[in-house]
């Protein structure tokens, strides 16, 4: 329950506290909103993957899964997918709703939704890799190490908002992220499984 509701609550709290930090009468809430949105998606994904393998590692079921004949990378991929379905999609829907409250321009919110979906999946994969690296060392370290890898995605996300505000070629950014995602979801489960096997040796 904590690992499911925690990240979503964190996301909501960050987004709610955003208007409080600026002048209430300020008309230009939109200005910093999108950068805050991407950063809070990043943070809540980091928070959600914190204990993705920890329980299985402590009670030994991780070892049994590796020994058993089922494909371990496939299991990792399924695990990430479930996290995305349970946390990534709600957060994307919430970011769509928050964006509706901030801007009058519906097309921005509509475009933001798939971007949030894809980027949350990319962040999840990266942070799962980080958590696997520092499995029994407190996963904050791993998340911090893999954070620089997520920064190029943040740059693309930031650029995409400018592109959509001017109404130019925003589909390019979507396809670029989709391409990154398709590479990441095929490669990361294998790397994560090797890393976890290293931990259990």
């Amino acid at each position: 329950m904590r690992s499911w509701l925690g990240p979503i609550l964190l996301f909501i709290l960050i987004m709610v506290s955003y208007p409080l930090t600026i002048e209430f009468l300020e008309q230009d809430l939109e200005k910093g909103f999108y950068s805050l949105l991407w950063i809070s998606i990043l943070l809540s994904m980091m928070f959600s993957t914190e204990d993705i393998f920890l329980e299985d590692y402590n009670d030994g079921s991780l070892e049994q899964i590796i020994i058993s004949s089922t494909s371990f990378p496939f299991m990792v991929a399924k695990k990430i997918l479930i996290y995305w379905l349970m946390i990534g999609i709600p957060i994307s829907i919430l970011s769509f709703l928050f964006s509706l409250g901030i801007t009058q321009n519906l097309s921005i919110s509509l475009f933001l939704f798939p971007m949030a979906l894809i980027s949350s999946y990319i962040f999840l994969n990266l942070f799962v890799f980080g958590t696997a690296l520092s499995l029994n060392k407190g996963s904050v370290l791993g998340a911090l190490i893999t954070m620089p890898l997520a920064l190029p995605v943040l740059i693309v996300l930031g650029k995409s908002i400018i592109a959509i505000q001017f109404g130019i070629n925003y589909l390019e950014f979507l396809l670029l992220l989709l391409g990154c995602l398709s590479i990441i979801i095929t490669v990361v489960p294998f790397i994560v499984s090797y890393v976890i096997k290293t931990h259990l040796e």
Binding site: L133, S134, K137, L141, G142, L144, I145, I191, Y194, V195, T198, H199, E201
Partner: peptide, 19 residues
């Protein structure tokens, strides 16, 4: 910081290489 956080050097080397 990843390498220094593990006392087992061999494990640290492998994880570092993946990173």
């Amino acid at each position: 910081s990843l390498h220094t956080s593990f006392s087992n050097h061999e494990k640290a080397d492998k994880l570092l290489s993946w990173l």
